[in-house]
Computed example of a mutant assay.
Amino acid sequence: MSVCSSTRSYGDDLDELDWYHYDLSRHAAEALLLSNGVDGSFLLRNSNKGPDCFAISVRAKDSVKHFHVKRQCGKYSFGFNEFPSLQDFMSHFANQPLLGSETGNLIVLRFPYPRQVEEPSIYESVVAPSLGTKEGYLVKQGAIIKNWKQRWFTLNRNELKYFKDKMFADPIRTLDLTACSAVQFDYSQHRVNCFCLVFPERTFYLCAKSGAEADEWIKILRWKLSQIKKGR
Score class of each variant (00 low, 15 high):
residue 179 A to M: 10
residue 188 S to P: 00
residue 161 K to L: 06
residue 194 C to N: 10
residue 203 T to G: 01
residue 157 R to T: 10
residue 182 A to T: 01
residue 189 Q to C: 06
residue 177 L to S: 03
residue 159 E to M: 10
residue 169 A to N: 15
residue 196 C to D: 03
residue 162 Y to F: 14
residue 202 R to M: 07
residue 163 F to P: 09
residue 164 K to M: 11
residue 156 N to P: 00
residue 202 R to S: 09
residue 166 K to R: 14
residue 172 I to S: 11
residue 160 L to E: 02
residue 206 L to C: 12
residue 192 V to S: 15
residue 198 V to L: 08
residue 199 F to S: 06
residue 155 L to A: 09
residue 161 K to I: 00
residue 160 L to I: 03
residue 196 C to T: 05
residue 181 S to E: 10
residue 171 P to D: 05
residue 199 F to Y: 11
residue 181 S to T: 01
residue 205 Y to S: 00
residue 157 R to N: 08
residue 203 T to R: 12
residue 191 R to I: 11
residue 175 L to W: 01
residue 188 S to F: 05
residue 172 I to H: 05
residue 171 P to M: 08
residue 168 F to C: 14
residue 188 S to Q: 14
residue 177 L to A: 03
residue 151 R to L: 12
residue 183 V to G: 02
residue 162 Y to Q: 09
residue 189 Q to V: 07
residue 176 D to A: 09
residue 190 H to M: 12
residue 201 E to L: 15
residue 176 D to M: 11
residue 156 N to M: 11
residue 165 D to P: 01
residue 161 K to D: 01
residue 173 R to H: 06
residue 171 P to F: 04
residue 198 V to I: 10
residue 190 H to V: 09
residue 202 R to D: 08
residue 149 K to M: 11
residue 204 F to Y: 13
residue 159 E to I: 04
residue 157 R to D: 08
residue 206 L to K: 07
residue 157 R to Q: 13
residue 147 N to I: 02
residue 160 L to N: 02
residue 147 N to H: 05
residue 151 R to V: 08
residue 171 P to Y: 04
residue 150 Q to V: 13
residue 160 L to Y: 03
residue 158 N to M: 10
residue 203 T to N: 06
residue 172 I to G: 01
residue 177 L to N: 04
residue 156 N to G: 11
residue 194 C to G: 07
residue 188 S to D: 12
residue 148 W to S: 03
residue 160 L to F: 04
residue 199 F to K: 09
residue 206 L to A: 05
residue 201 E to A: 14
residue 154 T to I: 02
residue 160 L to K: 05
residue 195 F to R: 06
residue 186 D to G: 07
residue 184 Q to M: 11
residue 160 L to A: 02
residue 191 R to P: 00
residue 204 F to L: 10
